[in-house]
C-alpha cells in the first residue's frame, strides 16, 4: 500500500525537478533580483565601514566582508548585462554596480588596505 504512493510522489518530484531546473538553468537571475543583491552588498559595505569606524569590527573581519562583496560584484558584472534588456535597465545596472564599487572603495579606505 505504501509502495505505489511513494513511487507516485517520486515521479511527481522528478517531473517537477526536470521542469523547474530545466526552466531555471542557463538564464541568469532576473534583473530586479540582481539589483537587490547589489544593493544588499552596498549596504553591507556601508555598515561595515561604520562599524569599523566605531571600533566594533576587526580589520580581519572587515577584509573578509570586502572579499565577499568583491565576489558578488564580479559575478554581477558578468551576468547583469544579459538580464538588462532596455536602455533604462542598463542604466540601473550600471548605477548599481557603480554604487557597490564606490562602497567597496570606501570600506578599503576606512580599513587602510
Amino acid at each position: 500500500m505504501l509502495q505505489p504512493a511513494s513511487t507516485r510522489t517520486t515521479r511527481l518530484y522528478l517531473a517537477l525537478t526536470v521542469l523547474l531546473v530545466g526552466g531555471g538553468c542557463g538564464s541568469p537571475p532576473p534583473l530586479d533580483k540582481q539589483l537587490e543583491t547589489l544593493a544588499s552588498w552596498t549596504a553591507t559595505m556601508q555598515l561595515a565601514k561604520e562599524r569599523h569606524g566605531a571600533g566594533a569590527i576587526t580589520i580581519t573581519y572587515a577584509t573578509q566582508l570586502r572579499d565577499r562583496a568583491d565576489e558578488a560584484f564580479q559575478q554581477a558584472s558578468t551576468t547583469i548585462g544579459q538580464s538588462a534588456q532596455t536602455h533604462s535597465d542598463s542604466a540601473y545596472a550600471a548605477a548599481a554596480l557603480d554604487s557597490l564599487r564606490t562602497a567597496i572603495r570606501q570600506l578599503e579606505a576606512e580599513i587602510g588596505s
Partner: peptide
C-alpha cells in the same frame, strides 16, 4: 535591506 547571502554578513 541587507540580505544574508554569505555567512560572514551575519556577524554584523
Amino acid at each position: 535591506e541587507i540580505k544574508v547571502d554569505r555567512y560572514e554578513q551575519i556577524a554584523l
